[in-house]
């Protein structure tokens, strides 16, 4: 394995950590709002690590640009979807979970 392979695998493992943490959050967090936090932020960062890790192994720069394009699309879609779902939950009266005091 070359140095690039090692760095690439490390980045992919880091990305996988964020995807797993995001799923854990979706499972463990108490309401839809907190779950959206986990989903939008952790998964976008995870995909970022993946795109950088895979770019190191890519054959041509066009493939790198394409992956960055997909990443950007996922970021914009994720943030917008998160906003819409949170707004819909709020207007339909889903009460945010509060820490018991």
């Amino acid at each position: 394995m070359s140095v690039i392979d090692v760095v690439s695998v490390l980045l992919l493992v880091a990305g996988t950590f964020f995807f797993l943490a995001g799923s854990t959050g979706v499972l463990r967090f108490p309401d839809v709002y907190t779950r959206l936090h986990a989903l939008t932020k952790a998964d976008n960062l995870g995909l970022g690590f993946f795109v950088i890790g895979l770019s190191l192994r890519a054959d041509s720069w066009v493939v790198v640009v394409k992956m960055v394009l997909i990443w950007a699309l996922v970021i914009v879609a994720g943030a917008t979807a998160g906003h819409l779902v949170a707004e819909a939950a709020r207007t339909s009266g889903v009460v945010p979970w509060r820490k018991p005091r």
Binding site: V32, V74, V85, A88, A89
Partner: peptide
Amino acid sequence: TPADRMLAAQLFGTTGVA
């Protein structure tokens, strides 16, 4: 809530892309 189910579908989307 239906929103919870929707966000699980979102998760399928991002992780599926990866």
